[in-house]
């Protein structure tokens, strides 16, 4: 489908981006306080209470070891929630008519919605990172790689959330994936332990959980080592991005659950 002239509708992208960021702004207190409180609770329970009885994992104190997993856990959840609500709400309240009748291309729409949600996810990740510093000292081996990895995760999961928001036909469907699929996969994906601590056959079974590769990759940017090689981790991130982009392209080509 060729698009005639005039280039990119930057103002349209900016309008949606600002609208979405303002939406987050309305719930700024819960948006910022929740991760701070949750992180603190994790550190009190896992870090101090249990962590004091745990030995180091791969030479890293347990408190520091769980920081990347904790950031990933929150970023997975929030990215999916925010991006899915962003596109689900116009569908639900009917304002999608305006988006569909506007001179916005599919890619512009995705950039605006996913960009806004990913911005919030990045912010959230950084807040958790800062909060963690109150409890443990963590040094980051590859700071730039860490930021890049966070950005990739934020974009991938926001894209995934965007797809979920388009697919969902009620609020329950919207909640079911992050709560019943992503949360267990994250807990079982080595957020709070190294998969090498697992006995067989679980160690092998765990390798079928894609989240393992994401958390391991993020942990690599902190400590220079992960459960699996960084190359493999990046491969999985790339694969997830590709699948999500492919699905989004398909959605807009066919108008799936957007247009009648």
């Amino acid at each position: 489908m060729s698009v005639q002239g005039r280039g990119v509708n930057w103002r349209g992208i900016a309008a949606i981006y600002r609208f979405e960021v303002a939406r987050f702004g309305r719930t700024i207190l819960t948006s910022l306080m929740t991760p701070v409180i949750t992180t603190s609770l994790y550190f009190i329970v896992f870090g101090s209470a249990i962590g004091s009885r745990m030995t180091e994992i791969n030479g890293i104190p347990y408190g520091a070891f769980i920081v990347p997993g904790l950031i990933m856990l929150s970023m997975f959840q929030e990215s999916i929630f925010n991006a899915s609500f962003g596109i689900y709400m116009p569908k639900w309240n009917g304002t999608i008519y305006e988006l569909l009748s506007a001179p916005m291309s599919a890619i512009e729409t995705v950039v605006a919605y996913v960009g806004a949600a990913a911005t919030k996810s990045m912010l959230l990740g950084l807040i958790i990172f800062a909060t963690a510093h109150l409890f443990v000292s963590v040094e980051v081996a590859h700071p730039l790689a860490m930021l890049a990895f966070m950005a990739l995760i934020a974009v991938s999961f926001c894209l995934f959330g965007f797809i979920l928001g388009i697919w969902a036909q009620n609020f329950e469907q919207l909640q079911v994936v992050p709560l019943l699929v992503i949360m267990p996969m994250t807990f079982l994906g080595g957020a709070f332990y190294s998969i090498h601590m697992l006995p067989e056959p679980w160690k092998t079974v765990t390798l079928f959980n894609p989240v393992v590769y994401l958390i391991s990759g993020f942990r690599w940017t902190f400590f220079g080592a992960g459960d699996v090689s960084i190359g493999l981790s990046l491969g999985f991130v790339a694969l997830m991005l590709l699948v999500c982009v492919g699905l989004v392209v398909w959605i807009f080509r066919t108008g799936y659950r957007l247009k009648k």
Binding site: R6, N9, R11, G12, A14, A15, I16, R18, F19, A22, R23, R26, N93, G94, T95, I96, Y97, E98, L99, S101, A102, P103, M104
Partner: peptide, 29 residues
Amino acid sequence: IGLVPQELHTDMFETVINTVRFSRGLFGK
């Protein structure tokens, strides 16, 4: 083209002026 649909579809939490500005931006103006 400008469209006023039959149903009252609005962003309930937005202010009047912001939602109108939003529309203008969305249409690239």
